[in-house]
């Protein structure tokens, strides 16, 4: 079972950290977490993928869905600490340009 760390930093950025495999089962939960954050007014979100070992198409769907929801609310969703295996999935699907990996969680909203 994938666990999700969720916190909101002092600067208002929400940080979500899924652990383990982001597949059909855990993607649904991630989607709920992301939508919940935006609904509570946190529309700038970093998904820290440093603890994520695997992402399938459902996981990508949850990230893209979260990105759209955040942007509609005037914010953005960024991904940080992406492993080579997960990055290869972003690259295969050509989603690496809209889910552009950031090296660190802290600096993910610096640009």
């Amino acid at each position: 079972m994938t666990e999700f760390g969720v916190e909101t930093r002092a600067d208002g950025v929400g940080v979500v950290t899924p652990e383990g495999r982001l597949n059909m089962v855990s993607a649904r939960r991630l989607r709920e977490v992301l939508v919940g954050l935006v609904e509570r007014g946190t529309s700038r979100i970093v998904v820290d993928l440093g603890e994520t070992t695997f992402v399938d198409s459902s996981g990508l769907g949850a990230l893209i869905g979260g990105l759209k929801t955040a942007r509609q609310a005037g914010g953005d969703l960024r991904v940080a600490r992406v492993s080579p295996a997960v990055l290869s999935v972003f690259e295969l699907t050509n989603l690496d340009r809209i889910l552009r990996p950031r090296p660190s969680v802290d600096g993910a909203f610096d640009d």
């Binding site: 295969l92 699907t93 050509n94």
Partner: peptide, 28 residues
């Protein structure tokens, strides 16, 4: 469209991937 998993194997055995930079349907 974001598939990325196409292999062309030439008669001499060399391999190249047929891909693009286009995204899947339903993103933007």
């Amino acid at each position: 469209a974001g598939s990325g998993l196409c292999l062309l194997v030439e008669p001499d055995g060399t391999t190249r991937r047929l891909s693009s930079r286009d995204r899947p349907f339903g993103i933007l």
